[in-house]
Design a protein around this nucleic acid. Structure first.
Length: 394
DNA sequence: TATCCACCGGAAGATGGGGTAT
DNA sequence: ATACCCCATCTTCCGGTGGATA
């Protein structure tokens, strides 16, 4: 018997529940996607034009966060790459949340064609020409996936989309560019100006929120792959599934909760992941998420958040933009910085809303005027205060 | 019916900080 | 060193908005 065996403490191992942590992250893409069979079928069918060397039509994936849009795209593209290695087609995937400007998207596209250009400092036209040149000589059809395209369109107004679709008219028969755009909402299509809309009319693939049985299947799949046999109770999965189905149908969130529940169970050296762990995990995931986003917030965003807490503390006062702004001015002078303008603060309130840190409701009319009113924060006031205090704002 | 209040949100320009090329 | 680029963040400016009020 090996000598060192006696010196290794293996007792903690018997409590281990997690088998493969990667599986419990939402970036992991499993071999099958429960509940998205129809979308996979549709998208595969659209791409199948490539098999007869025809250009596939453009597609728009529409659906709320965590409804499997990105997963379906990656899944199907992977399948095509594996099953048809000799296909005369290239796929390029760009996530516009990392590349929010036309310049940076083009930078990514160049890279995926093997052209290295500087990440900034170059004239846009040069990047465009390089891209076109590189594509012309590639001798294959191109499918460009633009994930979170609404972020790009918001800034760029869709000029890049227009340029890319227009390019098709100048290409020879055997070349083509097809766009697959992914978006949370449909309103980015309305943001495009009329000229663009007439040349860009994608097929629409809807991604509805997952329901309870679908979420259960997803969790079941992750548990089977990522957790050890017999270390979890079915009830826990059912609880997460029903909870998430009610509030959002967001699979990403369900998977997060499952992972957190498993970690909680391990931490207290439980033998099994139970429903109680799942219940606790819901709150913990919330806290963790908020804490992470608040930590990355710039100074003035934090001051505004603190000002909102100040105002909400006095329930008599309406937490409208004006009141919040005056509280923020005090915070700023206390902190010794020059306050931003009201226009800017108004915009930041919207930013905080879209980051899920506050809830806003519009109130129209009256002598009090039109204003945003903050209804509540993502965490109880005390917790939010603590968080801000940790960052020197008290 | 006109006006006003108190804020909304688009557009455009300023600012400052990153970069490249010569 | 100089002359260009890109770009996020703010400021400035300004035409809405809709019930309350005169």
């Amino acid at each position: 018997m090996p000598l060192d065996e006696a010196f290794i403490d293996t007792s903690y191992m018997s409590y281990t529940i997690i088998k493969d942590k990667r599986v419990l992250r939402d970036s992991y893409i499993p071999d099958t996607l429960p509940g998205r069979e129809e979308q996979i079928f549709q998208f595969s069918r659209i791409l199948s034009d490539l098999l007869v060397d025809q250009p596939p039509s453009d597609v728009a994936f529409i659906g709320k966060p965590g409804t499997g849009k990105t997963a379906v795209v990656k899944h199907v593209i992977k399948k095509y790459r594996n099953e048809y290695p000799n296909l005369r087609a290239k796929f390029a995937y760009v996530n516009c949340s990392q590349a929010t400007t036309a310049y940076r998207v083009l930078y990514q596209l160049n890279r995926s064609l093997g052209v290295l250009v500087p990440p900034s400092g170059y004239p846009f036209d040069v990047l465009w020409d390089k891209f076109v040149d590189a594509y012309m000589t590639s001798n294959s059809r191109l499918v460009i996936v633009l994930d979170e395209v609404d972020l790009l369109v918001k800034r760029d107004g869709g000029r890049l989309l227009y340029a890319l679709t227009r390019l098709n008219y100048d290409l020879p028969e055997e070349l083509s560019i097809s766009l697959v755009v992914i978006s949370n909402t449909m309103d980015f299509l309305e943001r495009l100006d009329p000229r663009e809309r007439s040349s860009f009319e994608p097929n629409r693939l809807q991604f509805p929120p997952y329901n309870h049985p679908q979420l259960y299947q997803i969790l079941r799949q992750r548990a089977d792959l990522g957790l050890k046999v017999g270390t979890w109770e079915d009830e826990a999965l059912q609880y997460i599934a029903s909870r998430v189905a009610q509030e959002s149908g967001d699979a990403r969130r369900a998977i997060d909760i499952l992972r957190m529940a498993a970690e909680l169970a391990e931490n207290e050296r439980a033998e099994k992941l139970t429903k109680e762990h799942a219940i606790m995990a819901v709150d913990t995931v919330n806290e963790e998420e908020v804490s992470i986003t608040v930590r990355t917030l710039p100074l003035h965003h934090r001051l505004i958040l603190a000002a909102i807490a100040d105002v909400l503390e006095r329930p008599v006062v309406r937490a409208g933009t004006g009141t919040i702004y005056r509280a923020y001015e005090q915070r700023a002078s206390l902190y010794g910085v020059k306050p931003l303008t009201m226009r800017r603060v108004s915009g930041i309130l919207r930013e905080l809303e879209s980051q899920g840190l506050i809830e806003i409701e519009m109130q129209y009319g009256g002598a009090r005027g039109n204003t945003k009113v903050v209804k509540k924060m993502a965490l109880p006031l005390r917790q939010m205060r603590n968080l801000l205090a940790q960052m020197g704002i008290r």
